[in-house]
Amino acid sequence: MDKATKSIFITGVGGQGILLASELLTSVAMREGYDAKKSEVHGMAQRGGSVISAVKFGEKVYSPLIAQAEADVLLSFEKLEALRYIKYLAPGGKVIVNTQEIFPGPVSAGLMDYPKDIEDKIKEYAEEAIFIDGLSIAKEVGNVRTVNVVLLGATSYFLPFKKETWKEMIEGNVPPKTIEVNLQAFDKGYTTVANYVK
């Protein structure tokens, strides 16, 4: 077991299934014998606001928070949010971005533009940035609501956990009828990154 604490910073927009994703990730870490903590702020998640969740695991985790320049992995469920929180990425950390665009209020209202150069900017800051179309992959496996599990599968490529543990935790945490499609979503997310990295 690697003793050093690993930090995964997850962000996106309320309603995208971020909290379930971070719950699954933390459970997997605990199941594999790590000390694990996760933290997030409740209350605004259903109201379309920006959502962040921090997951940390290691031999002994103290602070549940990820501070600036500490995240080993930054996983963003939405493109703009990836840029908003890029300052949390540690030097040499990985960025995984779902390319979905969800317009914030000021953009919907025509008061501001949705930035066009997000991918370029992220590449400026991150040595390794992976952009995947989670929504299309979720549609491919047959359920648009599995985007969060697709992205977990993608993230799992960079994490030291066994596939069986992921499988066990997914089976235990999603509605029984959707287990199969979620497992497919997870695999597809993983292979997408594996191919991307090659």
């Binding site: 927009v13 309320g14 605004m44 259903q46 109201r47 379309g48 606001g49 920006s50 600036q68 320049a69 703009l80 949010e81 840029l83 908003r84 890029i86 300052k87 914030p104 209020g105 000021p106 953009v107 501001m112 533009d113 949705y114 930035p115 900017k121 800051y125």
Partner: peptide, 17 residues
């Protein structure tokens, strides 16, 4: 201070649903 400056991004405040 943060070392990274990403400029003015459109904020995403909580809204009435």
């Amino acid at each position: 201070g943060s070392e990274i400056e990403v400029g003015d991004l459109p904020p995403r405040p909580p809204l009435l649903c």
